[in-house]
Amino acid sequence: MVENGKKDEDLDLLLPWYVNGSLSAEETKAVEAYLEDNPHARDEVELLSALRGQVKEETIENSPGELGLKRLRREISLSEKQDAAPAESGTVVTIASWWRPLAVAACLAVVIQAGFMVDLTRDAGDEVGTAGGEIAYAPPVLQVTFAPTATEQDIREVLQSAGTSIASGPTAIGVYGLRLLGGDTSDAQIDAALTKLQARGDVVTFAERN
C-alpha cells in the first residue's frame, strides 16, 4: 500500500521516530494512516514504546562530574603550558589514552604496596584505639589521582613524605582516598599533607580534602 507517496516498508522504518515524536507533521500523518489499517504495525509501536521507556529509565553509574572537570582543567592547563614553552622537542603532548596501561600498572603496584604499607606502618600510628580496645583504621581525609607516568616508587615516596597512606580506591576514574599516618587528623596536619602532595605535581595530578 502507498500512503502519501510512502510504501509500507518506508513507513515501518519510521515507526521508532513516530514513537519518539520527532517526525515531521507530514510523516506523522502518513504513519498514523498506516497504523489505522495495520494491526501488526500497531503492535510494533507498542513494543517500541516499551523499549524506549526502558532505555530512558536505565540507570548507570554516576558520570565523573566535578572530578572530571578538575581533570579537564588540569590537562588544559598542562597543554597550554606546553604550547607556551619553547618547542624543546617540537612535539605537543596530546591527551591520548596511551597512559591507561601505565595507569593500571601503577594502580596495581600501589594497591600491592598499600598492603605492605598497612602492615609496616601500623606501629606508626594510623590506627585509632577505641574504648573497647578494638582497632579501627582512620578514614580517608584526602583524595588524589596520580600521574599516568608515575612509578610505584614515585608514589611511595610522595605518600611517605606527606605522612599518608592509601585508605580507599581506586575509583572508576582513578581517585584514591588517603589517610594520615600518626593519628593526628587536625586541619593543620591535613593541610600540611595536602601541601606536600600538591608540591609533587609530577606524581600527584590532583589532590584535595575529602
Binding site: 548507570i60 553509574e61 558520570s63 565523573p64 572530571g68 581533570r71 579537564l72 590537562e75 588544559i76 597543554s79 591527551i95 591520548a96 589514552s97 591507561r100 572508576a172 576514574i173 582513578g174
Partner: peptide, 24 residues
C-alpha cells in the same frame, strides 16, 4: 555526553576517559 559514550563502550573507565578527550 558521558551517557552516550558509556552506551557505546560499556566500560565506565573508558567512558570517563573519552569524555575528557571530548571536552578537551
Amino acid at each position: 555526553v558521558y551517557r552516550f559514550i558509556r552506551s557505546k563502550l560499556n566500560d565506565s573507565f573508558d567512558a570517563a576517559d573519552v569524555l575528557n578527550e571530548v571536552m578537551f
